[in-house]
Design a protein around this nucleic acid. Structure first.
Lengths: 214, 214
DNA sequence: TAGATTGTTAATCGATTAACAATC
DNA sequence: TAGATTGTTAATCGATTAACAATC
C-alpha cells in the first residue's frame, strides 16, 4: 500500500505530486544530491511545511538534519505516481490534437506507450502518425482484445466523446484521458481525467479581466 | 467591478466558472429557459449550495421561487470570464501542439483570435497553419508592436520556454498560456496559466495505481 | 396566498501553516 | 556534541455544506 495505512490521498496533494517529480528530476539532472524542504520550498514556491506534510502521506523519505536524497525522493515519487511501470495507451481520434499527443516524446519517457491510433474517418486510415498507422475505429475491439490496453486518450469531437467512451468501457477499458469539451459519464469503476483546454484559457481570460478592473 | 465589493475570488471558485459556462451553454442550446440550483447540481455533480455560493460572489442572478434564467446566467458568466470580448493571441512554436491549438475552432468561437504563429526553425517559416503563415521569431517584435496582442501561447520545447517568455514580456506581453513542461518565472504583473499535460497524465496514472492497490 | 427557491448566515469540514520534540 | 532538519501534532485559515429567513 502506498499511502500510510491506506488512507485516501486528497486531490490537493495528488495535484502537487507531478510538480515534485518534475523539480526533483531537474535537481537530479543538475547533479544535486540532497535537498531540504526549505530549499525545495524556495524553488517551488510552496511552503516547506506543506512539502513535509505532503511527503509524509507516503512515508518518511527524509532524514533529520540532512534533508532528502534527491535521486531517492525522485524515484519514490515516480513509483507513487505509477510512472516507470509501463502503461499501454490508445489514441482515439487522429485529428490535430491526437497527432500532437502521439508525437510528443515526453510521455513515452515516463513509460506511457502509445500502441495504436484510431479514427472514424476512413480516409485517414493508413496514414502514418508517430510511427503508427491510423486504424479504423472498427478495428478497436480486436485491437483492445489483443493488446493489454490500460488507458484510452479521447480526442474526438465532443458530440462523439460519450459514445466512444461507452464503447471502450464495454471493451473493458476503464481509464480515460479525455480532451473532448464535455464531461464523460461512466460507471464508478472508470477513472476519467479530463483536460479542458478551453476552460484553462477561460480561467486565464478571467484573471486578465480581474486585473484590468483594478 | 465584477465581484461584489471587489473582493478577490478564490482559485476554487474560478476553476468552476468555465464548467458553469459550459453546462449553461448546453442547456441554452437545448432550448431550456430556466434552471434551479438543484437541477444544475444534479447535472454538474456539485452541491446546490456551492452553486449558489459561487454565483453570489458576483451578484444575485437568480430569483426566489423561480431559479435562474439560463440565457441570462450563461451570458453573465461569459462576461465575468471575459469571453466574448475579443482577445488577440499569438502562438509561439509551430510544432504539432502549436498547430493543433491553431486549428481548434472552439477558441475563436469564444473570442480568442489567433493572429500569428511563430517558430525559431526557419525551414517552417512560410508554411500555412490554420490560415496563418508561420513567421520567424525574428519578426515577433515588429508583429507585437503592430497588432494589439493580449496573450502569448508558449508551445516551445521546455529549454526555450523561459527565454521566449522573457523576450515576450519585454515586448510588453503580460499574459501567457504555457504548454512547456516547466514553470515560467516572470515579474508579478505577468499572468501565467500553465497546462502541463504530462502532469495530468501522471495524476491519472496515480489514481490507477491507487485503485489497483485496493 | 402557498409553494418554491434564492441569497446569506452559521456550522462543519478539510487543507494549510506554525511550532517543536525527535533524531540524524 | 551541537546544528540542522525532519516528522508530526496543534492552531489557523479557507472552502464547503447545511439551514433558513427573505421573497418572488
Amino acid at each position: 500500500m502506498d499511502s500510510k495505512s491506506g488512507k485516501t490521498i486528497s486531490k490537493a496533494v495528488i495535484s502537487r505530486l507531478p510538480g515534485y517529480h518534475r523539480f526533483l528530476g531537474e535537481l537530479a539532472a543538475a547533479g544535486i544530491e540532497r535537498v531540504s524542504s526549505q530549499e525545495l520550498s524556495r524553488l517551488m514556491k510552496i511552503t516547506a511545511s506543506q512539502i513535509r506534510q505532503d511527503l509524509n502521506n507516503f512515508g518518511g523519505f527524509g532524514q533529520q538534519g540532512y534533508g532528502y536524497n534527491v535521486r531517492r525522493l525522485y524515484s519514490e515519487i515516480g513509483r507513487i505516481l505509477g510512472v516507470g511501470r509501463p502503461h499501454n495507451l490508445i489514441i482515439v481520434g487522429a485529428g490535430n490534437l491526437g497527432r500532437a499527443i502521439a508525437n510528443y516524446h515526453g510521455f513515452s519517457e515516463q513509460g506511457f506507450n502509445f500502441c495504436g491510433i484510431f479514427d472514424a474517418n476512413e480516409s485517414l486510415c493508413g496514414q502514418e502518425v508517430a510511427g503508427l498507422s491510423v486504424m479504423s475505429v472498427d478495428k478497436l475491439e480486436d485491437f483492445v482484445r489483443d493488446y493489454d490496453i490500460d488507458i484510452a486518450v479521447i480526442v474526438v469531437p465532443k458530440e462523439a466523446a460519450q459514445k466512444v467512451a461507452e464503447e471502450l468501457y464495454r471493451m473493458d477499458i476503464k481509464h480515460f484521458w479525455n480532451f473532448a469539451h464535455t464531461e464523460l459519464s461512466l460507471p464508478d469503476d472508470a477513472i476519467v481525467k479530463s483536460v479542458h483546454l478551453l476552460d484553462s484559457l477561460m480561467e486565464l481570460s478571467f484573471e486578465i479581466s480581474q486585473k484590468e478592473m483594478k
